[in-house]
């Protein structure tokens, strides 16, 4: 009786399992196909919609027009100038802001006196969106590069400072006690334990700061300048060159995407023990 009921059940289970496995494989293949088609489908629909006459082609140019505008931008030599101007602002701002953030984060995280002195000030300034500083930056620096740098540094600094501060504070006390028992001098504790213990937090802060540096770049270039990707978008808008505007947006998206990927790859190497 028992054998009679259990045997068919086993078979039923087995076929059920096989079906489920082939189903999931089929589903995975479908997902890959859909993923590969996503962008071409989107661009094709866009082209059709623009040329259908339902929308104004000047305000909503098709991808082919955008591509032509980008090609012209590159051919004229302006693209290289704009790209290097923007990248220079982002990288110098990122490096200066990041270095200051790490330095002060270690100081406030490690020394309670420094934290009592600076943390209240930083916590008041940190929530103000960097873009809100554009008017006063124009008053202080005019249209000079120093003003652009100031905005990017400002945006990057607070993110990196806060994550470094938290990272230093969260260093495992057990590691510090173990290091003390092994004879690590207190003055070497920073380089031996604290910095490395905080490193994963610092790296996360820096990665967040990469995208923040691009946000602030937009604000900085809109505030008035003479070259740069966002500057070009603004000029094209004033001339009703909608294709150029969209090409600029695509370029900006691509650059910040590449920057983020590069940093992610770098970060993986920085925290080498994970």
């Amino acid at each position: 009786m028992q054998d009679g009921t259990s045997a068919p059940q086993k078979i039923a289970l087995r076929t059920d399992g096989r079906n489920r496995r082939t189903d999931s494989a089929r589903l995975r293949r479908l997902n890959i196909l859909v993923g590969a088609l996503s962008l071409p489908l989107f661009v094709g629909l866009w082209e059709l919609a623009s040329r259908s006459g339902a929308v104004n082609m000047v305000l909503f140019p098709p991808p082919t027009v955008v591509a032509a505008a980008v090609l012209e931008w590159i051919r004229s030599g302006q693209f290289l100038g704009d790209l290097s101007a923007s990248l220079l602002r982002v990288t110098t701002g990122f490096i200066v802001g990041g270095a200051l953030g790490i330095l002060l984060g270690i100081l406030t995280g490690q020394f309670p006196v420094v934290s009592s002195l600076l943390s209240p000030l930083f916590h008041i300034l940190r929530p103000i969106p960097p873009i809100a500083f554009v008017p006063i930056v124009i008053l202080w620096f005019g249209l000079s590069e120093a003003g652009k740098l100031f905005l990017v540094v400002w945006g990057v600094f607070f993110t990196v400072w806060l994550s470094t501060h938290i990272g230093v504070q969260k260093v495992d006390r057990g590691l510090i006690r173990a290091a003390l028992m092994l004879g690590t001098p207190r003055r070497q504790m920073l380089q031996e334990i604290v910095l490395l213990g905080a490193l994963p937090y610092i790296v996360v802060g820096l990665r967040t700061a990469v995208s923040i540096s691009f946000y602030t770049l937009v604000a900085a270039e809109l505030a008035g300048t003479f070259a740069g990707i966002v500057y070009r978008i603004e000029i094209a808008q004033q001339n009703m060159q909608t294709g150029q505007v969209m090409g600029g947006l695509a370029a900006l998206g691509l650059i910040s995407f590449i920057a983020d990927r590069l940093f992610a790859a770098l970060a993986e190497r920085t925290v080498w023990w994970r």
Binding site: D172, G174, L175, R177, A178, A179, M181, L182, I193, L196, L199, W272, W273
Partner: peptide, 13 residues
């Protein structure tokens, strides 16, 4: 004087 704790507290890096 050496010490071994309940948790190993090895330096992960």
């Amino acid at each position: 004087v050496g010490m071994v704790f309940q948790q190993p507290h090895l330096f992960p890096w």
